[in-house]
Nucleic acid binder design. Structure first.
Length: 428
RNA sequence: GCGGCUAUAGUGAAGUGGUUAUCACGCUAGUUUGUGGCACUGGAAUCAUGGGUUCAAUUCCCGUUAGCCGCCCCA
Protein backbone atom coordinates (compact mmCIF):
# COMPACT_ATOMS: atom_id res chain seq x y z
CA UNK A 1 0.00 0.00 0.00
CA UNK A 2 1.78 3.03 -1.27
CA UNK A 3 0.46 6.40 -0.20
CA UNK A 4 2.03 8.21 -3.10
CA UNK A 5 -0.47 8.94 -5.78
CA UNK A 6 0.36 9.87 -9.32
CA UNK A 7 -1.28 12.16 -11.75
CA UNK A 8 -0.88 12.82 -15.44
CA UNK A 9 2.08 15.06 -16.21
CA UNK A 10 1.25 18.70 -16.75
CA UNK A 11 -0.55 19.37 -19.99
CA UNK A 12 -1.48 15.73 -20.57
CA UNK A 13 -4.74 14.04 -19.75
CA UNK A 14 -6.74 10.86 -19.90
CA UNK A 15 -9.44 10.74 -22.51
CA UNK A 16 -12.12 8.84 -20.65
CA UNK A 17 -14.75 6.49 -22.06
CA UNK A 18 -17.46 9.11 -21.90
CA UNK A 19 -15.51 11.33 -24.29
CA UNK A 20 -14.51 8.58 -26.69
CA UNK A 21 -17.65 8.85 -28.85
CA UNK A 22 -16.62 12.41 -29.80
CA UNK A 23 -13.14 11.30 -30.77
CA UNK A 24 -14.38 8.30 -32.70
CA UNK A 25 -16.92 10.42 -34.50
CA UNK A 26 -14.25 12.86 -35.57
CA UNK A 27 -11.89 10.12 -36.69
CA UNK A 28 -14.47 8.26 -38.66
CA UNK A 29 -15.75 11.36 -40.46
CA UNK A 30 -12.24 12.59 -41.16
CA UNK A 31 -11.01 9.27 -42.49
CA UNK A 32 -14.12 8.73 -44.62
CA UNK A 33 -13.96 12.22 -46.06
CA UNK A 34 -10.27 12.01 -46.83
CA UNK A 35 -10.25 8.55 -48.33
CA UNK A 36 -13.20 9.56 -50.51
CA UNK A 37 -10.85 12.22 -51.87
CA UNK A 38 -8.11 9.62 -52.42
CA UNK A 39 -5.94 10.64 -49.53
CA UNK A 40 -3.95 7.73 -48.13
CA UNK A 41 -3.10 7.27 -44.52
CA UNK A 42 0.51 7.31 -43.40
CA UNK A 43 1.73 6.71 -39.87
CA UNK A 44 4.91 8.50 -38.92
CA UNK A 45 7.10 8.00 -35.87
CA UNK A 46 6.56 10.17 -32.83
CA UNK A 47 10.29 10.75 -32.67
CA UNK A 48 12.60 12.05 -35.36
CA UNK A 49 16.11 13.35 -35.57
CA UNK A 50 15.75 16.80 -34.08
CA UNK A 51 17.41 18.29 -37.17
CA UNK A 52 14.31 17.38 -39.16
CA UNK A 53 12.31 19.77 -37.04
CA UNK A 54 14.95 22.48 -36.70
CA UNK A 55 15.57 22.73 -40.39
CA UNK A 56 11.97 22.16 -41.29
CA UNK A 57 10.15 24.43 -38.91
CA UNK A 58 12.89 27.03 -38.59
CA UNK A 59 15.31 27.38 -35.71
CA UNK A 60 14.11 30.91 -34.94
CA UNK A 61 10.55 29.85 -34.24
CA UNK A 62 9.10 29.53 -30.76
CA UNK A 63 8.32 25.90 -31.39
CA UNK A 64 11.99 25.06 -31.79
CA UNK A 65 13.40 27.60 -29.38
CA UNK A 66 11.33 26.79 -26.36
CA UNK A 67 8.69 24.17 -26.98
CA UNK A 68 10.43 21.12 -28.39
CA UNK A 69 10.96 18.02 -26.27
CA UNK A 70 14.47 16.73 -26.76
CA UNK A 71 15.11 13.16 -25.69
CA UNK A 72 17.94 12.30 -23.42
CA UNK A 73 20.60 10.52 -25.43
CA UNK A 74 21.50 6.92 -24.80
CA UNK A 75 24.85 5.34 -25.56
CA UNK A 76 23.71 3.51 -28.66
CA UNK A 77 22.58 6.55 -30.59
CA UNK A 78 24.80 9.10 -28.98
CA UNK A 79 25.42 11.13 -32.09
CA UNK A 80 21.77 11.37 -33.05
CA UNK A 81 19.67 13.86 -31.17
CA UNK A 82 16.06 12.77 -31.08
CA UNK A 83 13.04 14.92 -30.47
CA UNK A 84 9.35 14.33 -29.91
CA UNK A 85 7.46 15.63 -32.90
CA UNK A 86 5.89 19.07 -32.33
CA UNK A 87 3.97 18.89 -35.61
CA UNK A 88 3.59 16.53 -38.53
CA UNK A 89 4.71 18.27 -41.69
CA UNK A 90 8.45 18.05 -41.22
CA UNK A 91 8.23 14.31 -40.59
CA UNK A 92 5.94 13.84 -43.56
CA UNK A 93 8.42 15.62 -45.81
CA UNK A 94 11.20 13.44 -44.44
CA UNK A 95 9.10 10.39 -45.30
CA UNK A 96 8.40 11.74 -48.78
CA UNK A 97 12.11 12.04 -49.45
CA UNK A 98 13.20 8.83 -47.73
CA UNK A 99 10.65 6.68 -49.56
CA UNK A 100 11.22 8.22 -52.96
CA UNK A 101 7.67 9.43 -53.22
CA UNK A 102 8.82 11.93 -55.84
CA UNK A 103 8.69 9.02 -58.28
CA UNK A 104 5.19 7.97 -57.27
CA UNK A 105 2.30 9.23 -59.38
CA UNK A 106 1.88 12.87 -58.43
CA UNK A 107 0.27 14.41 -56.54
CA UNK A 108 0.89 12.27 -53.45
CA UNK A 109 -1.94 12.88 -51.01
CA UNK A 110 -1.37 11.78 -47.44
CA UNK A 111 -3.00 12.14 -44.09
CA UNK A 112 -2.01 11.18 -40.57
CA UNK A 113 -3.57 11.18 -37.17
CA UNK A 114 -1.78 11.22 -33.88
CA UNK A 115 -0.18 12.90 -30.91
CA UNK A 116 2.12 15.90 -31.11
CA UNK A 117 4.14 17.35 -28.25
CA UNK A 118 4.98 20.91 -27.34
CA UNK A 119 6.34 22.17 -24.05
CA UNK A 120 4.01 25.12 -23.69
CA UNK A 121 2.10 26.49 -20.74
CA UNK A 122 -1.19 24.59 -20.75
CA UNK A 123 -4.56 26.27 -20.96
CA UNK A 124 -7.95 25.20 -22.13
CA UNK A 125 -7.55 23.87 -25.66
CA UNK A 126 -3.80 23.89 -25.30
CA UNK A 127 -2.04 20.78 -24.13
CA UNK A 128 1.50 19.51 -24.12
CA UNK A 129 0.41 16.28 -25.70
CA UNK A 130 -2.34 16.94 -28.21
CA UNK A 131 -3.87 15.16 -31.14
CA UNK A 132 -3.68 16.38 -34.69
CA UNK A 133 -5.04 15.35 -38.02
CA UNK A 134 -2.69 16.46 -40.76
CA UNK A 135 -2.86 16.25 -44.52
CA UNK A 136 -0.19 16.94 -47.10
CA UNK A 137 -0.44 17.16 -50.88
CA UNK A 138 2.92 16.80 -52.63
CA UNK A 139 3.89 17.41 -56.22
CA UNK A 140 1.39 19.90 -57.54
CA UNK A 141 2.07 23.60 -57.85
CA UNK A 142 -1.35 24.70 -59.04
CA UNK A 143 -3.94 26.35 -56.79
CA UNK A 144 -6.08 23.26 -57.30
CA UNK A 145 -4.20 21.61 -54.46
CA UNK A 146 -4.54 24.64 -52.20
CA UNK A 147 -8.23 24.47 -52.89
CA UNK A 148 -8.39 20.71 -52.30
CA UNK A 149 -6.67 21.14 -48.95
CA UNK A 150 -8.95 23.93 -47.76
CA UNK A 151 -12.02 22.20 -49.10
CA UNK A 152 -11.26 18.88 -47.39
CA UNK A 153 -10.80 20.68 -44.10
CA UNK A 154 -14.01 22.64 -44.57
CA UNK A 155 -15.81 19.45 -45.51
CA UNK A 156 -14.66 17.44 -42.49
CA UNK A 157 -15.71 20.09 -40.02
CA UNK A 158 -18.95 20.70 -41.84
CA UNK A 159 -19.86 17.02 -41.84
CA UNK A 160 -19.15 16.90 -38.15
CA UNK A 161 -21.94 19.41 -37.74
CA UNK A 162 -19.83 22.36 -36.58
CA UNK A 163 -21.31 25.77 -37.31
CA UNK A 164 -20.13 29.35 -37.81
CA UNK A 165 -16.71 28.46 -39.11
CA UNK A 166 -14.60 30.73 -41.19
CA UNK A 167 -11.38 30.38 -43.13
CA UNK A 168 -8.84 33.16 -42.84
CA UNK A 169 -6.42 33.28 -45.71
CA UNK A 170 -3.56 35.28 -47.08
CA UNK A 171 -0.60 34.93 -49.39
CA UNK A 172 2.85 35.60 -48.04
CA UNK A 173 4.58 35.42 -51.40
CA UNK A 174 7.55 33.40 -52.55
CA UNK A 175 11.31 33.83 -52.13
CA UNK A 176 11.26 36.03 -55.22
CA UNK A 177 8.76 38.63 -54.09
CA UNK A 178 8.75 38.38 -50.30
CA UNK A 179 12.12 40.14 -49.82
CA UNK A 180 10.70 43.15 -51.66
CA UNK A 181 7.80 43.25 -49.26
CA UNK A 182 10.00 42.81 -46.24
CA UNK A 183 12.14 45.72 -47.35
CA UNK A 184 9.01 47.81 -47.71
CA UNK A 185 7.75 46.69 -44.33
CA UNK A 186 11.02 47.47 -42.60
CA UNK A 187 11.08 50.88 -44.18
CA UNK A 188 7.59 51.51 -42.85
CA UNK A 189 8.53 50.33 -39.38
CA UNK A 190 11.90 52.01 -39.17
CA UNK A 191 10.73 55.23 -37.54
CA UNK A 192 8.03 53.47 -35.51
CA UNK A 193 10.25 51.11 -33.58
CA UNK A 194 10.33 53.37 -30.57
CA UNK A 195 6.55 53.01 -30.35
CA UNK A 196 6.65 49.22 -30.71
CA UNK A 197 7.04 46.63 -27.97
CA UNK A 198 10.37 44.95 -27.18
CA UNK A 199 9.29 41.83 -28.90
CA UNK A 200 8.54 43.67 -32.11
CA UNK A 201 11.95 45.29 -32.00
CA UNK A 202 13.42 41.81 -32.01
CA UNK A 203 11.09 40.70 -34.75
CA UNK A 204 12.18 43.63 -36.87
CA UNK A 205 15.56 41.95 -37.14
CA UNK A 206 14.79 38.25 -36.88
CA UNK A 207 11.41 37.68 -38.45
CA UNK A 208 9.89 40.90 -39.76
CA UNK A 209 6.78 39.21 -41.12
CA UNK A 210 5.68 38.44 -37.60
CA UNK A 211 5.51 42.16 -36.83
CA UNK A 212 2.06 41.96 -38.37
CA UNK A 213 0.98 39.37 -35.85
CA UNK A 214 1.68 41.28 -32.64
CA UNK A 215 -1.16 41.34 -30.13
CA UNK A 216 -0.04 44.51 -28.28
CA UNK A 217 -2.61 47.26 -28.73
CA UNK A 218 -0.10 49.88 -29.79
CA UNK A 219 1.60 47.50 -32.22
CA UNK A 220 -1.73 46.44 -33.65
CA UNK A 221 -2.41 50.03 -34.64
CA UNK A 222 0.89 50.26 -36.41
CA UNK A 223 0.36 46.93 -38.13
CA UNK A 224 -3.05 48.03 -39.32
CA UNK A 225 -1.56 50.88 -41.36
CA UNK A 226 1.37 48.84 -42.65
CA UNK A 227 1.82 48.07 -46.33
CA UNK A 228 -0.17 45.06 -47.46
CA UNK A 229 1.77 42.13 -48.82
CA UNK A 230 -0.82 41.38 -51.46
CA UNK A 231 0.16 44.61 -53.24
CA UNK A 232 3.77 43.53 -53.53
CA UNK A 233 3.30 39.95 -54.75
CA UNK A 234 4.93 38.93 -58.01
CA UNK A 235 2.55 38.12 -60.81
CA UNK A 236 2.99 34.38 -60.27
CA UNK A 237 1.97 34.57 -56.61
CA UNK A 238 -0.77 37.05 -57.33
CA UNK A 239 -2.36 34.84 -59.96
CA UNK A 240 -2.01 31.79 -57.76
CA UNK A 241 -3.86 33.48 -54.94
CA UNK A 242 -6.45 34.92 -57.27
CA UNK A 243 -7.24 31.53 -58.76
CA UNK A 244 -7.55 29.98 -55.33
CA UNK A 245 -10.00 32.65 -54.22
CA UNK A 246 -12.09 32.09 -57.33
CA UNK A 247 -12.34 28.41 -56.49
CA UNK A 248 -13.32 29.16 -52.91
CA UNK A 249 -15.94 31.60 -54.14
CA UNK A 250 -17.29 29.13 -56.63
CA UNK A 251 -17.73 26.46 -53.97
CA UNK A 252 -19.13 28.96 -51.48
CA UNK A 253 -16.58 28.34 -48.81
CA UNK A 254 -16.78 31.12 -46.27
CA UNK A 255 -13.50 32.95 -46.07
CA UNK A 256 -11.94 36.26 -45.14
CA UNK A 257 -8.74 37.64 -46.56
CA UNK A 258 -6.59 38.64 -43.61
CA UNK A 259 -3.61 40.57 -44.94
CA UNK A 260 -1.95 40.32 -41.55
CA UNK A 261 -2.17 36.54 -41.34
CA UNK A 262 1.32 35.09 -41.16
CA UNK A 263 2.08 31.84 -39.49
CA UNK A 264 4.43 30.78 -36.77
CA UNK A 265 6.27 28.24 -38.83
CA UNK A 266 8.95 29.38 -41.22
CA UNK A 267 8.33 27.04 -44.09
CA UNK A 268 5.30 28.62 -45.70
CA UNK A 269 5.16 30.36 -49.04
CA UNK A 270 2.24 31.72 -51.04
CA UNK A 271 -1.01 30.50 -49.51
CA UNK A 272 -1.50 30.43 -45.75
CA UNK A 273 -4.78 29.85 -43.96
CA UNK A 274 -6.39 29.14 -40.64
CA UNK A 275 -9.81 27.89 -39.72
CA UNK A 276 -11.61 29.08 -36.62
CA UNK A 277 -15.00 29.66 -35.14
CA UNK A 278 -16.28 33.02 -36.34
CA UNK A 279 -16.75 34.30 -32.79
CA UNK A 280 -13.14 33.52 -31.84
CA UNK A 281 -11.96 36.89 -33.13
CA UNK A 282 -8.45 36.80 -31.70
CA UNK A 283 -8.10 33.23 -32.85
CA UNK A 284 -6.71 32.04 -29.56
CA UNK A 285 -8.24 28.70 -30.34
CA UNK A 286 -7.80 28.13 -34.04
CA UNK A 287 -9.09 24.73 -35.00
CA UNK A 288 -6.41 24.33 -37.59
CA UNK A 289 -4.13 25.98 -40.03
CA UNK A 290 -1.76 25.37 -42.87
CA UNK A 291 -0.54 26.56 -46.19
CA UNK A 292 1.83 25.99 -49.06
CA UNK A 293 5.47 25.10 -48.46
CA UNK A 294 7.09 24.67 -51.85
CA UNK A 295 10.65 25.03 -50.60
CA UNK A 296 10.63 22.71 -47.64
CA UNK A 297 11.36 19.50 -49.52
CA UNK A 298 14.56 20.89 -50.94
CA UNK A 299 15.47 22.36 -47.59
CA UNK A 300 15.32 18.90 -46.04
CA UNK A 301 17.52 17.44 -48.76
CA UNK A 302 14.94 16.30 -51.30
CA UNK A 303 14.30 17.19 -54.94
CA UNK A 304 12.59 20.40 -55.97
CA UNK A 305 8.92 19.80 -55.45
CA UNK A 306 5.71 21.46 -54.32
CA UNK A 307 3.51 20.90 -51.33
CA UNK A 308 0.54 22.20 -49.42
CA UNK A 309 -1.01 20.93 -46.23
CA UNK A 310 -2.68 21.71 -42.96
CA UNK A 311 -3.33 20.29 -39.55
CA UNK A 312 -6.39 20.27 -37.34
CA UNK A 313 -6.32 20.25 -33.56
CA UNK A 314 -8.62 17.43 -32.54
CA UNK A 315 -8.71 18.40 -28.86
CA UNK A 316 -10.05 21.81 -29.81
CA UNK A 317 -12.51 20.35 -32.28
CA UNK A 318 -13.86 18.00 -29.61
CA UNK A 319 -14.22 20.98 -27.25
CA UNK A 320 -16.16 22.87 -29.88
CA UNK A 321 -18.36 19.85 -30.62
CA UNK A 322 -19.34 19.86 -26.98
CA UNK A 323 -19.92 23.61 -26.93
CA UNK A 324 -22.05 23.44 -30.04
CA UNK A 325 -23.85 20.37 -28.72
CA UNK A 326 -22.92 18.09 -31.58
CA UNK A 327 -24.19 14.61 -30.66
CA UNK A 328 -21.82 11.84 -31.63
CA UNK A 329 -23.41 8.49 -32.47
CA UNK A 330 -23.29 6.00 -29.63
CA UNK A 331 -22.33 2.36 -30.04
CA UNK A 332 -25.00 -0.20 -29.35
CA UNK A 333 -23.61 -2.27 -26.50
CA UNK A 334 -25.73 -5.00 -24.97
CA UNK A 335 -29.24 -5.10 -26.39
CA UNK A 336 -30.71 -8.14 -24.68
CA UNK A 337 -29.98 -9.89 -21.39
CA UNK A 338 -31.32 -13.36 -20.75
CA UNK A 339 -32.46 -13.92 -17.16
CA UNK A 340 -33.16 -17.41 -16.00
CA UNK A 341 -34.66 -19.04 -12.92
CA UNK A 342 -34.15 -22.71 -12.20
CA UNK A 343 -32.55 -25.70 -13.88
CA UNK A 344 -35.20 -26.37 -16.46
CA UNK A 345 -35.04 -22.79 -17.63
CA UNK A 346 -31.27 -22.97 -17.84
CA UNK A 347 -31.49 -25.62 -20.55
CA UNK A 348 -34.03 -23.66 -22.52
CA UNK A 349 -32.08 -20.45 -22.12
CA UNK A 350 -29.11 -21.72 -24.11
CA UNK A 351 -31.36 -22.41 -27.11
CA UNK A 352 -32.89 -18.96 -26.81
CA UNK A 353 -29.42 -17.49 -26.56
CA UNK A 354 -28.32 -19.24 -29.76
CA UNK A 355 -31.38 -18.10 -31.62
CA UNK A 356 -30.92 -14.47 -30.60
CA UNK A 357 -27.19 -14.24 -31.22
CA UNK A 358 -27.61 -15.80 -34.67
CA UNK A 359 -29.75 -12.78 -35.55
CA UNK A 360 -26.64 -10.67 -34.68
CA UNK A 361 -28.36 -9.09 -31.76
CA UNK A 362 -25.98 -8.17 -28.94
CA UNK A 363 -26.98 -10.59 -26.24
CA UNK A 364 -25.55 -11.43 -22.83
CA UNK A 365 -26.35 -14.58 -20.92
CA UNK A 366 -24.55 -15.82 -17.85
CA UNK A 367 -26.46 -18.57 -16.00
CA UNK A 368 -26.81 -17.81 -12.32
CA UNK A 369 -28.69 -18.62 -9.16
CA UNK A 370 -29.29 -15.01 -8.28
CA UNK A 371 -32.72 -13.67 -7.49
CA UNK A 372 -34.72 -12.25 -10.34
CA UNK A 373 -34.53 -8.92 -8.58
CA UNK A 374 -30.76 -8.95 -8.71
CA UNK A 375 -30.68 -10.21 -12.27
CA UNK A 376 -32.94 -7.41 -13.43
CA UNK A 377 -30.86 -4.84 -11.59
CA UNK A 378 -27.77 -6.14 -13.31
CA UNK A 379 -29.46 -6.11 -16.69
CA UNK A 380 -30.41 -2.48 -16.22
CA UNK A 381 -26.91 -1.65 -15.10
CA UNK A 382 -25.48 -3.21 -18.24
CA UNK A 383 -27.61 -0.74 -20.23
CA UNK A 384 -29.42 -3.57 -21.96
CA UNK A 385 -32.60 -2.49 -23.73
CA UNK A 386 -34.53 -5.72 -23.21
CA UNK A 387 -34.60 -8.59 -20.75
CA UNK A 388 -35.72 -12.04 -21.80
CA UNK A 389 -37.01 -13.74 -18.66
CA UNK A 390 -37.28 -17.52 -18.54
CA UNK A 391 -38.69 -19.19 -15.43
CA UNK A 392 -40.07 -22.64 -14.70
CA UNK A 393 -43.50 -21.82 -16.03
CA UNK A 394 -42.19 -20.35 -19.28
CA UNK A 395 -39.74 -23.17 -19.82
CA UNK A 396 -42.51 -25.71 -19.70
CA UNK A 397 -44.70 -23.84 -22.15
CA UNK A 398 -41.87 -22.89 -24.52
CA UNK A 399 -42.43 -19.22 -23.87
CA UNK A 400 -40.44 -16.29 -22.56
CA UNK A 401 -41.25 -12.94 -21.03
CA UNK A 402 -39.83 -10.08 -23.07
CA UNK A 403 -39.43 -7.05 -20.86
CA UNK A 404 -38.68 -3.61 -22.21
CA UNK A 405 -36.39 -2.24 -19.54
CA UNK A 406 -36.83 1.42 -20.37
CA UNK A 407 -40.61 1.29 -20.69
CA UNK A 408 -41.24 -1.20 -17.86
CA UNK A 409 -43.62 -3.07 -20.13
CA UNK A 410 -43.51 -6.78 -20.73
CA UNK A 411 -45.36 -9.48 -22.59
CA UNK A 412 -45.21 -13.22 -22.98
CA UNK A 413 -44.03 -14.48 -26.34
CA UNK A 414 -43.45 -17.94 -27.81
CA UNK A 415 -39.82 -18.99 -28.23
CA UNK A 416 -40.45 -19.59 -31.88
CA UNK A 417 -39.40 -16.54 -33.96
CA UNK A 418 -38.41 -14.69 -30.80
CA UNK A 419 -35.21 -13.36 -32.35
CA UNK A 420 -36.87 -11.80 -35.36
CA UNK A 421 -39.48 -10.26 -33.08
CA UNK A 422 -36.73 -8.65 -31.00
CA UNK A 423 -34.93 -7.49 -34.10
CA UNK A 424 -38.11 -5.81 -35.31
CA UNK A 425 -38.48 -3.93 -32.05
CA UNK A 426 -34.84 -2.88 -31.92
CA UNK A 427 -35.01 -1.46 -35.43
CA UNK A 428 -38.00 0.69 -34.58
C1' G B 1 8.94 31.54 -19.91
C1' C B 2 6.01 35.82 -17.12
C1' G B 3 1.50 37.57 -14.31
C1' G B 4 -3.45 36.61 -11.84
C1' C B 5 -7.24 33.28 -9.67
C1' U B 6 -8.26 28.47 -7.67
C1' A B 7 -7.66 23.39 -5.09
C1' U B 8 -13.08 20.07 0.33
C1' A B 9 -16.31 12.39 -1.33
C1' G B 10 -16.92 10.35 -8.33
C1' U B 11 -19.29 15.32 -9.84
C1' G B 12 -21.13 20.07 -8.24
C1' A B 13 -21.24 22.86 -4.06
C1' A B 14 -21.38 24.55 1.39
C1' G B 15 -18.55 25.12 6.11
C1' U B 16 -15.32 25.74 10.75
C1' G B 17 -8.67 27.77 14.59
C1' G B 18 -10.88 22.85 18.80
C1' U B 19 -15.65 16.43 19.70
C1' U B 20 -18.57 11.79 14.54
C1' A B 21 -16.68 18.01 8.22
C1' U B 22 -22.29 19.12 5.83
C1' C B 23 -25.78 18.97 1.28
C1' A B 24 -27.40 17.37 -3.61
C1' C B 25 -26.76 14.08 -7.44
C1' G B 26 -23.90 9.88 -8.60
C1' C B 27 -21.46 5.26 -6.97
C1' U B 28 -21.64 0.89 -3.88
C1' A B 29 -23.77 -3.24 -0.41
C1' G B 30 -28.26 -4.93 1.26
C1' U B 31 -33.91 -4.88 2.30
C1' U B 32 -33.98 -13.36 2.88
C1' U B 33 -33.64 -16.38 -5.08
C1' G B 34 -40.63 -14.42 -10.16
C1' U B 35 -39.64 -8.53 -11.47
C1' G B 36 -35.08 -2.88 -11.66
C1' G B 37 -35.28 2.71 -12.14
C1' C B 38 -39.45 4.68 -6.26
C1' A B 39 -38.76 3.81 -0.85
C1' C B 40 -35.83 2.31 3.42
C1' U B 41 -30.98 0.90 5.96
C1' G B 42 -25.70 0.81 5.55
C1' G B 43 -20.56 2.12 3.02
C1' A B 44 -16.93 5.44 0.93
C1' A B 45 -12.91 12.31 1.83
C1' U B 46 -5.84 10.97 5.98
C1' C B 47 -10.48 18.70 3.39
C1' A B 48 -4.10 18.39 -3.36
C1' U B 49 1.00 18.02 -1.32
C1' G B 50 5.41 19.54 1.88
C1' G B 51 6.68 22.86 5.64
C1' G B 52 5.71 26.92 9.25
C1' U B 53 2.67 29.86 13.10
C1' U B 54 -0.36 27.79 17.32
C1' C B 55 -1.77 24.18 23.23
C1' A B 56 -4.65 22.95 18.65
C1' A B 57 -4.71 23.87 11.43
C1' U B 58 -9.09 21.33 6.62
C1' U B 59 -9.41 26.66 8.16
C1' C B 60 -3.89 31.55 8.86
C1' C B 61 1.26 32.04 6.25
C1' C B 62 5.13 30.15 2.73
C1' G B 63 7.00 26.52 -0.91
C1' U B 64 5.51 22.46 -4.42
C1' U B 65 2.14 20.29 -7.81
C1' A B 66 -2.07 20.74 -10.90
C1' G B 67 -6.26 23.31 -13.27
C1' C B 68 -8.32 27.79 -15.23
C1' C B 69 -7.59 32.94 -17.15
C1' G B 70 -4.29 36.85 -19.34
C1' C B 71 0.57 37.54 -22.00
C1' C B 72 3.55 34.79 -25.41
C1' C B 73 2.72 31.16 -28.96
C1' C B 74 -0.04 27.77 -31.59
C1' A B 75 -3.51 23.07 -32.95
Amino acid sequence: MSNKSFQTPRGTRDILPKDQPYWQHFRSIAENTLSALSFDRIDLPHIENSEVFCRGIGSDTDIIQKEIYLLEQTKEDSDEKLALRPEGTAGAVRAYIQNGMASWPQPVKLYYLGAMFRHDRPQKGRYREFQQLGIEIFGDQTPKSDYLAIMSCWEILGRLGLKDLIIYTNSIGCPKCRPKYIAKLKKYYKDKLSLSCDNCNLRYHNNPLRLLDCKEESCKKIAKESPVILDTLCSDCKNHFQELLELLDYFQIRYDIDPRLVRGLDYYSKTVFEIAEASDIERQNSLGGGGRYDDLIEKLGGPKSFAVGYSLGIDRIVNLMKEQKVQPPVKNGIEVCILQLGEKAKNKAKKVYDQISKESINVLFIPSHESLRTQIKNAVKSKSKYAVIIGQAEAVKDEVILRDLSASAQETLPVKNLASEIRRRLDK
